[in-house]
């Protein structure tokens, strides 16, 4: 399970909600370091197509993952309006390219529902749960562990 910042009440946590191809997604706020505007990346040779490249984050080399491509919506054509969510997972920093960040929301963990079986949808394996908001919108919660490219090249 992903680790999140503990809050006053048990079972509650904040998420960062963002949009991709007119659908709403979210990730645990505990994983998010900051949100930045899009800047052009340096390409990485031989990388999977959803890896946009790397950017300089205050002296660190950070990989940017195109969520749209990763979730099967097709490669994004990033512009100034796009955002990069800088997240930390398993000791690695990664940037997630999204259309825009819509909100930071408190959610009750009881309200997270399992994902109904949707046959052969690429997004299916990256989504750990669905949250229905009061206004009727549905937030799809993303599992970073599944999403990120495996650390390759670490041979014995």
């Amino acid at each position: 399970m992903l680790q999140s910042i503990s809050h006053n009440s048990v079972g509650k946590s904040d998420v960062v909600a963002f949009k991709l191809a007119d659908q709403d997604f979210c990730i645990d706020i505990g994983l998010v370091r900051e949100i930045r505007g899009w800047t052009p990346t340096t390409m990485l040779p031989h990388a999977p197509d959803y890896v946009k490249g790397v950017i300089n984050l205050r002296g660190s080399v950070v990989t940017v993952v195109d969520l749209s491509a990763r979730l099967g919506f097709g490669a994004a054509t990033p512009s100034h309006r796009h955002v990069v969510i800088i997240a930390m997972h398993a000791g690695r920093i990664v940037g997630l390219l999204a259309d825009l960040v819509s909100d930071i929301l408190p959610i009750n963990e009881d309200h997270i529902q399992a994902v109904p079986d949707i046959a052969s949808n690429p997004a299916r394996e990256f989504i750990v749960g669905m949250i229905t908001l009061e206004d009727g919108r549905i937030l799809r919660k993303i599992d970073l562990a599944q999403l990120l490219p495996a650390a390759h090249g670490v041979e014995a």
Binding site: P45, H46, V54, V61, T63, I93, G153, V154
Partner: peptide, 9 residues
Amino acid sequence: LEQNYGRVP
């Protein structure tokens, strides 16, 4: 590069 990504051939 390996710290946040991995090895690139």
